[in-house]
């Protein structure tokens, strides 16, 4: 009995002293979440509305690249991935934006953008597909959309309390702009949690393979970015860590060593210098 206590105390102490290690998977998530947390039509409508608002803000600062052929090509790659993506209630849209840096973003509701500079680093279509599929993954899992629901609920409590105490009916209203602020804050400041990135990578491996791409594309791209530009991404986990789990995921899904790179089609359509 005393032994058990000692073990527990030692474990607690060692965990405490070892400090914070990034990257717990969301192990508490239970299978029933798929059913219990399924978004309602109303949730989806809000998600699309706010996502559209957020991408509108991104486009205000970083306009679409004025190259219809390039846009059409990137959209086709994205659409062929989106065929196999769950959440068919969303319309996915893909575009290239003029923005500094190698990056890609997605907002709730299915808007996915990739920077022109990122396209310049890519060598083939499988790499592009990997990046787009990763972003689709964030949308499908609702990583940002969950914030919105949470924000709505938290304020809902205050709103109802205020109403209870006798405040005006509009006291607890949350504006569309505030909701959009939440999304922007998440995308550009807080970033995704490590388990959410892993989630999206897991999704990317499946989705690219299902669409016929080589699943290794995303990893190749990340490696090249790390080599040529360093790994200083404040909102993504270290590349070495991601490459490790990508390899494991490919093994887990049995999707290694086949699929297409689409390098010919890529070079015919993308003429962006890095």
């Amino acid at each position: 009995m005393r032994g058990g206590l000692l073990v527990a105390v030692t474990l607690l102490a060692s965990v405490w002293s070892s400090g914070v290690i990034a990257g717990p998977v969301d192990c508490r998530r239970r299978a029933c979440a798929q059913v219990m947390d399924a978004p309602t039509a109303e949730d989806v409508a809000v998600e699309v509305r706010v996502g559209r608002e957020a991408v509108g803000r991104i486009l205000r600062r970083h306009p679409l690249v004025d190259d219809p052929d390039l846009q059409r090509y990137v959209n086709l790659v994205g659409q062929s991935l989106a065929l196999a993506a769950p959440r068919g209630e969303l319309v996915f849209r893909f575009a290239v934006i003029e923005a500094p840096g190698v990056n890609a973003y997605s907002t709730p509701g299915g808007y996915v953008v990739v920077t022109r500079e990122a396209l310049g680093v890519m060598r083939d279509e499988a790499e592009l597909a990997g990046v787009l599929a990763h972003e689709i993954g964030h949308v499908v899992a609702g990583h940002v959309a969950k914030d919105l629901r949470l924000a709505g609920r938290s304020r809902g409590l205050w709103a109802s309390l205020i109403r209870l105490v006798g405040g005006g009916g509009s006291a607890g209203e949350v504006g569309l702009r505030e909701a959009t602020d939440t999304v922007m804050e998440r995308l550009f400041n807080r970033g995704y949690r490590v388990e959410e990135e892993l989630d999206a990578d897991r999704f990317a491996v499946t989705l690219t393979s299902a669409a016929g791409y080589e699943a290794e594309g995303l990893g190749r791209f990340l490696e090249r970015v790390a080599e040529t530009r360093g790994t200083a991404s404040p909102t993504h986990p270290p590349t070495t860590k991601r490459l490790g789990w990508l390899r494991d995921l490919i093994k887990e899904y049995g999707s290694g060593g086949h699929g297409h790179r689409g390098s010919g089609r890529f070079s015919r359509n993308v003429h962006v210098s890095p």
């Binding site: 809000v46 509108g56 709505g152 304020r155 504006g175 569309l176």
Partner: peptide, 19 residues
Amino acid sequence: RGVRSSGVRERLNSADAPD
């Protein structure tokens, strides 16, 4: 559910206004 557009005035001149 906490998201609502009534009473929201888009600040169209601001750099943050959606395009």
